[in-house]
Amino acid sequence: MNDHLALPTLHPIQGAARCAIAALVLAGAAWAVRAVWQIQLAAAGQPPSGPPDQGDGLHRTLTALEDVYHVVSSLGDAATVLCAVVFLAWLWRVRGNARILSGQRPRYAEPWVYAGWIVPIANLWIPRGIVVDIHRASAPGERMPRAVNWWWGLWLVGALSGTGLMYTGTTDAVIARAYTDVSPLLLADAAVVGAAVAGVFVVRALTAVQQNHMHELLRRGAGSSVLGPSGPARAIPSSQAR
Results as ranks from 00 to 15, higher is better:
His4Ile: 09
Leu10Ile: 13
Gly15Thr: 04
Ala20Ile: 08
Leu24Lys: 00
Val25Cys: 14
Gly28Glu: 12
Arg34Asn: 06
Ala35Gln: 13
Ala35Ser: 15
Ser49Ile: 13
Ser49His: 13
Asp53Ser: 11
Gln54Asp: 09
Leu65Met: 06
Val68Tyr: 11
His70Ala: 04
Asp77Gly: 13
Thr80Gly: 14
Thr80Leu: 15
Ala84His: 10
Val85Met: 13
Val86Cys: 12
Phe87Pro: 13
Leu88Phe: 03
Arg93Ile: 12
Val94Ser: 07
Ala98Val: 04
Ile100Tyr: 15
Leu101Arg: 09
Ser102Met: 01
Ser102Leu: 05
Ser102Arg: 09
Ala109Ile: 00
Ala115Pro: 00
Trp125Thr: 11
Gly129Val: 13
Val132His: 07
Ile134Cys: 15
Glu142Asp: 11
Glu142Arg: 14
Met144Val: 09
Trp151Thr: 07
Gly153Phe: 06
Leu154Met: 15
Leu154Arg: 12
Leu156Asn: 03
Val157Gln: 08
Gly158Ser: 06
Gly158Glu: 05
Ala159Met: 03
Leu160Glu: 06
Gly162Ser: 07
Thr163Ser: 09
Thr163Val: 11
Tyr167Ser: 12
Asp172Lys: 04
Ala178Val: 01
Ala178Ile: 00
Val182Lys: 02
Leu186His: 09
Ala190His: 02
Ala195His: 05
Phe201Thr: 05
Arg204Tyr: 08
Leu206Ser: 02
Glu216Cys: 13
Leu217Glu: 14
Ser238Met: 14
Arg242Lys: 12
